[in-house]
Simulated assay, not measured.
Amino acid sequence: MTDASLLARIDRLESLDAIRQLPAKYSLALDMRDGDAWVNLFPEDVRVGGGKSGRKALRDWFDETHSMQFDGTSHHIGGHIIDFDDPDHAQGVVYSKNEHECGAEWVLMQMMYFDQYERIDGRWYFRRRLPLYWYASDINKSPVGDRKMRWPGVPPYHGSFHDLFPSWKTYWARNGQPHDGPVEPAAPLEKFIETMRRGAPLPKPRVRS
């Protein structure tokens, strides 16, 4: 093994560790309502929406959103898959199960994030987080049925949890019949998420953290 290849492998391991910490830092900063710590997980030129950009605009959104909608939150991070596009760019999927105190209701949520990461000046950031929701419902109400996103005072809606991966619809379209095609080859290294997406477009976000 050459010195260059060894250094590249060490760099990859250090990058994996740094990226894996991002969702945990995101959750802690969000739950503790530390807007400065939260926005500094994103680059200085982060896009906020509505033509706005920058950490100050993102912090304004953070303060307004979480003071109006939630009395308290707790985010529990699950499995985290990371694929590298190149040494300074990566993408990931991370599960999150969240609890929200919303006035008289205690809303449980199951979701995942599709993330894009970027290393800038030696530090890894979220370039983008796309939330994909399965359900949100008061702890005393089952979320079974359609439109599982059920927030107090908001009409139920679809949360796009399965929309990034076409296999969900393909599986149910077979109506329980076995797959009659050959087993596809394993995903190439660093292409697991891309292979599962099969070219599916990104769903339009509807943000509830």
Rank of each mutant, 00 (worst) to 15 (best):
H158F: 11
F84I: 05
C102H: 07
G153D: 13
H89W: 09
G122S: 02
M109I: 13
V144G: 03
V94C: 15
D138N: 15
A29M: 03
R33S: 10
A90N: 06
D71F: 00
R9T: 13
D3N: 07
F165N: 02
K148C: 07
Y26S: 01
W124Q: 10
V93I: 15
A29I: 00
G199Y: 03
K141I: 05
T2K: 06
S209K: 04
R127C: 08
F165I: 13
S96E: 07
K97H: 15
I81E: 10
A136S: 07
E101K: 14
A136F: 02
L108N: 11
H76V: 12
L202Q: 11
Q21D: 15
H162C: 05
A173M: 04
D163W: 02
S96V: 14
A187D: 01
H162T: 13
V48N: 08
D180H: 05
Q91E: 14
E14H: 06
D85Q: 11
N40S: 05
G145E: 04
Y113G: 00
A173N: 08
W61M: 13
D45T: 11
R9F: 06
N140R: 12
V183P: 00
W151E: 01
P156I: 00
D146Y: 03
H75F: 05
W134R: 14
R12W: 04
N140D: 12
A29S: 14
E105W: 05
I77Q: 07
V94E: 05
G49H: 04
R127G: 09
L28R: 13
P23N: 07
A136I: 03
V46K: 01
R206V: 12
L41H: 07
P143H: 08
P155S: 10
P155Q: 14
R208E: 11
D138G: 10
D31C: 10
T73G: 06
D146P: 01
M111A: 15
I193D: 06
